[in-house]
């Protein structure tokens, strides 16, 4: 098993952190090999950012994805910029409020991650909602492992908020599967 994953959005959304959480869940809280790499523009905020993760049950040589199996997009610009090399059977999740033009003639999962985060009182956990949706939609990693990874990766004083965001994301993911 070897899966190439790309999480993209705009700088400041926590795209890198979501990739970090997924990679850590796979390689620290489960027994997979994982690498995470990142690309971003010179801007500290805004601009298209991406975080890429490879999860494999074998040692990983070349550490960057060649083609993408799973794409998660949290901004229009990043969705438009970073989907050239996705595989024909790639599974896609978008935040349908942030990626309004997502009709590309193929099915994709829609999760209103930012809206859910705002309901929880803080837009900053949008990325964690997406990590939750990622977990339930792709079914690649154990829910418990990802949850532990979330807890291990966010500041202690925000643990509760992030767990809520993760769980709401899991649920939103399940609903998105039903809707597809």
């Amino acid at each position: 098993m070897k899966k190439d994953i790309r999480v993209c959005g705009f700088g400041g959304q926590g795209v890198i952190l979501s990739g970090f959480i997924i990679g850590k869940a796979a390689s620290v809280f489960m027994d997979y090999h994982a690498v995470q790499s990142q690309s971003y523009g010179p801007e500290a905020r805004g601009g298209a950012a991406r975080s890429e993760i490879i999860i494999s049950d074998e040692k990983i040589g070349y550490p960057r994805p060649i083609g993408v199996d799973y794409l998660v997009a949290m901004s229009q610009e990043s969705f438009d910029t970073y989907r050239d090399d996705i595989r024909d059977d790639a599974v896609i999740i978008v935040d349908s409020d942030l990626v309004k033009k997502h009709d590309i003639g193929r099915p994709l999962y829609k999760v209103q991650a930012q809206k859910i985060a705002e309901e929880l009182g803080n837009k900053i956990v949008t990325n964690i909602v997406m990590v939750g949706a990622f977990t339930s939609i792709f079914g690649l990693l154990k829910t418990e492992a990802v949850k532990e990874s979330v807890i291990d990766s966010v500041p202690k004083r925000f643990t509760e908020l992030n767990i809520k965001a993760f769980e709401r994301g899991l649920e939103a993911g399940k609903n998105a599967v039903k809707e597809l």
């Binding site: 970090f20 990679g23 390689s27 620290v28 090999h33 994982a34 690498v35 995470q36 790499s37 990142q38 550490p63």
Partner: peptide, 9 residues
């Protein structure tokens, strides 16, 4: 820059 900015176990 490749290995320095890579994350792994």
């Amino acid at each position: 820059g490749e290995v320095g900015h890579l994350r792994e176990r």
